[in-house]
Nucleic acid binder design. Sequence first.
DNA 1: CTACGACTTCAAGTTAACTTGAGGTCAAGC
DNA 2: GCTTGACCTCAAGTTAACTTGAAGTCGTAG
Lengths: 131, 131
Amino acid sequence: MNLLDIGEVASRANVPPSTLRYYEEVGLISSVSRRGLRRQFEPDVMIRLALVALARTAGFSLSEIAAFFGKGELMHEMPRDALHAKADELDKQINKLAALRDTLRHVADCSAPSHMECPKFRQLLRSATRP
Amino acid sequence: MNLLDIGEVASRANVPPSTLRYYEEVGLISSVSRRGLRRQFEPDVMIRLALVALARTAGFSLSEIAAFFGKGELMHEMPRDALHAKADELDKQINKLAALRDTLRHVADCSAPSHMECPKFRQLLRSATRP
DNA sequence: CTACGACTTCAAGTTAACTTGAGGTCAAGC
DNA sequence: GCTTGACCTCAAGTTAACTTGAAGTCGTAG
């Protein structure tokens, strides 16, 4: 069988083994056996870890992510509405990030003496903070 | 003059006064005087707070945000390249979030028995984790 | 003028997400 | 067979970003 040693998983996922042990402790991943003392993981764990990393950068907490996964299989416990709600939440966040990005680009390029006097800046700020 | 009492700022920005004191302590905002013991802020502080909140949801740390602002005026210390770099960083994050959002929507709507068997899911995962 | 409520300081506590350290175990190479 | 390096456990430490608590101070309403 093609199980992965914790060290292998760690280097592929680019996280220290301590993080993997921690993730197992909080139920985000699970090892399937040991070789000596060493945890062995199924290759699938890499996908989980990728999703965890992704969701983390999206600002979700580990327990939210755990809820995503549900107790059993990949996201199968979560009702559709909850998933849609999460997706909508993400949409809002994406809009804010886009507004912030545009604001940064504008600030980098605009030559107004003070940003507060620049109408474009103020408009960007409004669109960034309104919705 | 139209200075704002800390309580006023707090309720408008929807954060507790303790957070404002903390932000002042770490240099994100500054009060301009006192009425009795109470901090007074210039109305501008609301814009700063909005930007702080925005950048926080974008995943920036308070010290990164402080660097944004620079020691003096609104984002004026930051060289253009740094701002552009931040904007590019945001773009990447936006792409990832969009991929995650699409993945969530797909999972909510797809009826495949196991997501791993669904080609669309795998494709979404790839696009979410590759770039 | 007194009571009240919202502020003040300062130190200590909280939570999330890990990391570090001490002391121990194992399998693979020499 | 012994050494070595990467793992093990468990408890304790760390950092960011705040919050809470105790003890005190004001300005405003009554």
